[in-house]
Design a protein around this nucleic acid. Structure first.
Lengths: 169, 169
DNA sequence: GAAGATTGAGAGTTCAATCTTC
DNA sequence: GAAGATTGAACTCTCAATCTTC
């Protein structure tokens, strides 16, 4: 396991400089923002996964669990979850398979549509979701910090990008 | 292929609201920023991959190619590339395998360290890198836009997060 | 013994194809 | 015919183990 030593200079700053020197100044801002977003995503997801691993969960399965936890009846059609989580139907099937094998979720027939399948959270699933949330809040979410209103500004800018990409209306 | 229809309401806003209602207001900001970063990363990387796919590249392999393109001698040790790109050594091996199979990169023995291996970009690799960069700049990077100095602000905030995570000194 | 690189196993995602039901 | 869900193949990433060279 190589302890990821911090680099002396910021590699993304270097890339940005390379872009400008190559005559691509107009694209330098977008390139460096994109690379930064990807890198921060890697960092944060690996922190989340490290917390969830001992609980037998991944970020994707945790999101499924929380979606059910916050739903009115504790159950949702698989397709709806795929839409909400913006993931491929096959990923939902896979996640529900794993959660069901661990007894955290149950598959149920859709009451009105014979094609559909509902996933329902079990009591064990609610307990696991609560434990995971407590740890994630304390160890990761509450420690994502920025000076001043940095977090709110960041959220608004990212929301703007998502909106422009057509992520929501 | 399901055309990802935009949702009527922002799912991350909903999650944020759920967090506050659950009594986790202190963690709501971090949770929604983290989820936003992950989502934007997914969107942008899939746009990049869509551009690179016809060129036989992925984002990871493109980054390797550009690292070599911007290096002084057009060649670097595999380990150095792993550090700069912040990826696992096995991922570098895999990327170089694919690039070498396509004739875009050549493996060379390290001149002074018998353990090391250099990857050197070939003329075909330079042509492929130039074509990929032209398209990425025009189709993706130049279209990542925000009003005012939004892009610079976003870059600075993400850099702050990376710095706090120990990504660089 | 430690560092650089490779290998094979395990997990997750995406895609195309399939099956059932509307 | 179209939609919901599942399956198997292909790909990528990560991890542990291995091999060579310092």
């Amino acid at each position: 396991v190589p302890p990821p030593r911090p680099l002396a200079v910021d590699p993304i700053d270097q890339a940005r400089e390379n872009w400008v020197n190559a005559g691509w100044a107009r694209a330098a801002g977008g390139m460096s923002v994109l690379t930064s977003v990807v890198r921060v995503s890697q960092i944060l997801v690996s922190e989340v996964d490290a917390v969830l691993r001992p609980l037998g969960l991944t970020f994707a399965r945790y999101e499924v669990l929380m979606l059910l936890r916050f739903s009115r009846a504790g159950e949702l059609p698989l397709g709806k979850m795929g839409e909400r989580l913006q993931v491929h139907p096959a990923s939902v099937t896979n996640a529900v398979d794993r959660l069901e094998a661990d007894g955290l979720v149950r598959r149920q027939p859709h009451p009105s549509d014979g094609r559909g399948v509902l996933a329902a959270i079990t009591p064990a699933g609610r307990r696991r979701a609560a434990a995971a949330s407590d740890q994630l809040n304390a160890v990761v979410f509450e420690r994502v910090e920025l000076p001043g209103d940095g977090l709110d500004t960041l959220y608004a800018l990212l929301k703007d990008l998502r909106h422009r990409a057509g992520d929501f209306v």
